[in-house]
């Protein structure tokens, strides 16, 4: 069973503020979905996990300078900015 306190904590971990009625509703829904996921408990598998079907690793590109966004382009969607920087909320 997942409690609304658990959901509230998940909300904190994922940086999504949840009202009390949200966490209660999500707790009920998550419970049902997690219950469905227990179907996997029946699988006995000693297979190695498959992260990625192509199973490529270490794909490198040539180390050459290419064009990237200008500072102006990179900032073009930032609502709050200061002196050519993104403005962030205070950390503490």
């Amino acid at each position: 069973m997942i409690s609304d306190e658990d959901v509230k904590h998940l909300g904190w971990l994922s940086r999504v503020e949840l009202e009390k009625e949200d966490s209660e509703k999500f707790a009920r829904e998550l419970d049902r979905i997690l219950d469905y996921f227990t179907i996997l408990d029946a699988v006995e598998s000693d297979l190695s996990p498959l992260h990625h079907v192509l199973e490529l690793s270490n794909v490198f590109r040539d180390d050459v300078v290419a064009d990237s966004l200008t500072a102006e382009e990179a900032l073009s969607n930032a609502k709050l900015q200061e002196n050519g920087y993104f403005r962030a909320p205070r950390i503490l």
Partner: peptide, 26 residues
Amino acid sequence: ILLGTYALSAGYYGKYYLKALKVRRM
């Protein structure tokens, strides 16, 4: 997002995410 965070969190990773990746290979 909440469910994904749950499935990846310590203590549940093996039960959900890792298990799902094994099933994926199967």
